Simulated scan of single mutants.
Amino acid sequence: MTEQSILTGCLNNDPVAQRELYNRYSPKMLSVCYRFAQKREDAEDMLQEGFIRVFTQIKSFRNSGSFEGWIRRIIVHTCINFLKKHKKFNESLDLAYVTDVQVKEETVPSLMMVRQVVECIRLLPIGYRTVLNLYAIEGYSHKEIAQMLDIEESTSRSQCTRAKTMLETILIKKKIIEKPAETYSLTAAFK
């Protein structure tokens, strides 16, 4: 099925089209959910809630821009709402301290490193992880993040800075990267 036929079918509540849409986009969207979730079960719950929203809101897609991008935005917002609803974000926001990430060179070592970095991001406190995912991977501005998470823009910036610093420390401790030279740091790489 083409993307347009899937969209048309979903607009008509065709179960075959809905199943095709889910089968086509759920693996990528699960990896988005996995970056935000503490456990795989949470990621699967986020994915399910997200696709329910996709199917109920599909009439609002205006065919301007990427259909996958539209789905991804719904999934990201669903993840944020899930964290807020279960108070998982607020519990760790005040602490003191991507399998679908695009890789330029898909060699075995580079893919292994991406997986290791994504796993290290998942070790961050959920507040840091959420802000870092939204800023560095999803591309939202600190102003947009502040609005989504009901926090101050300065809080988003500080959480992101602390997340980068903590991630750099984790990567060094796990020997995924070497201690950066004075001219290079992971924080600078995420700017």
Rank of each mutant, 00 (worst) to 15 (best):
V101E: 07
E41V: 00
Q159A: 13
E41I: 01
T8Y: 04
E3T: 15
K179R: 13
Y135C: 01
P15W: 08
L95S: 02
Q147P: 01
D42C: 01
I121W: 00
L21M: 15
D14G: 12
E168F: 13
K179I: 13
K173V: 02
H142G: 11
F190K: 01
E106S: 04
E106F: 00
K104E: 07
T56R: 03
V16P: 01
L134F: 00
E182G: 05
V114K: 13
I6M: 15
N12M: 09
I172D: 04
E41G: 02
V32Y: 01
S158K: 10
I170T: 10
S156A: 15
I52W: 06
G65D: 02
Q116K: 13
R73G: 04
F89W: 11
S5A: 13
F67A: 08
T130S: 05
A163G: 13
I172T: 04
R72T: 11
M113I: 10
S60D: 11
E178A: 12
R162L: 06
L171H: 12
K173Y: 03
G9R: 08
S92A: 08
I145N: 01
N90W: 06
E182W: 05
M113Q: 10
T8P: 04
T169C: 01
S5D: 12
E91N: 14
N133L: 05
V101I: 09
L95A: 00
S31E: 03
S66W: 05
L124Y: 03
Q116I: 03
R122V: 03
Y22P: 03
E153K: 15
V114M: 09
I75L: 11
S60K: 11
T187I: 13
Y128K: 13
V16C: 06
E20V: 01
V54C: 14
K88D: 02
P109M: 11
D14R: 12
S5F: 07
D14A: 14
V103W: 04
L186E: 07
T155D: 08
N12F: 02
F190T: 06
P27S: 03
H142L: 11
D14S: 15
N81P: 00
Y22I: 08
D45R: 14
I176R: 04
L132Q: 02
R162Q: 10
I71R: 10
I71D: 02
N12S: 12
L134W: 00
W70K: 07
R19T: 06
D150L: 11
Q147S: 12
T8V: 06
E49P: 00
R122S: 00
E182K: 13
G9M: 06
E178M: 10
F67N: 07
G69A: 14
K164M: 15
F55M: 15
K179T: 12
G65C: 08
I145L: 09
I170L: 14
N63I: 09
L132F: 12
K59P: 02
E91Y: 12
N12E: 14
N13M: 09
I145T: 08
Q18D: 09
Q116R: 11
I172E: 07
M46A: 07
